[in-house]
Amino acid sequence: MHIPDGIVPLSVAAAGYAVTAGATWYSLRKINQQEDPQAGIPKAALLTSAFFVASWIHIPVPPTSVHLILNGLLGTVLGFYAFPAILIGLFFQAIMFQHGGLTTLGVNAAMMGIPALLAYGIFQLRTRFNLQDSQLWTGVFGFLAGSIGLALAAAIAFTILITTIPGNIDVAAERASITALIVAHMPLAIIEGIFTAMLVVFLMRVKPELLEGASTQKAAVASS
């Protein structure tokens, strides 16, 4: 789902950068408003590394295997640091593996980052309904966060790709292929959802602070 260089026109790449710049600026502002912005940096940075490596884990889906994006979970755990984390993660992927382009860094970050923030919001609903102590409901919200995080990212990615590829494909074919690609990714979204659910239940048992409304914010307050 990472969009490579050369495919989308500059206008789209520029728009992507504009959105990413805005979201990053907003995130940094929120980070700087905390009592001790520095305290959250090592936490966010090391979790970025952990998510980066965790996405290498092969999930067997016979006959093949898939790698998860985990943007939903990343949003859940990192809160305001999620967008910078995704930006950095994508940058590393572009440099290290040429996975996703540099001109398309903005587009890719927006495509994965906005759903991540949405996933964060969805997961926080858990506290709104006072369900944070229930393992079952934590799992449910985890599933929603994970699956919607991926589904939305896929929807954005394919819509951009199909509508901006140079060449004339007629509108009906365009719409058909977008729908087809998104539908093809639904099983993947379900898998991400299930995996995210299992992960949040694990974290709830082992380190619940990681799930409490952006633990990085907590760190900034606690250590001051």
Binding site: N32, I41, P84
Partner: peptide
């Protein structure tokens, strides 16, 4: 903030 995060 971004630079420090990236280096770490």
């Amino acid at each position: 903030i971004l630079a420090d995060m990236m280096l770490l």
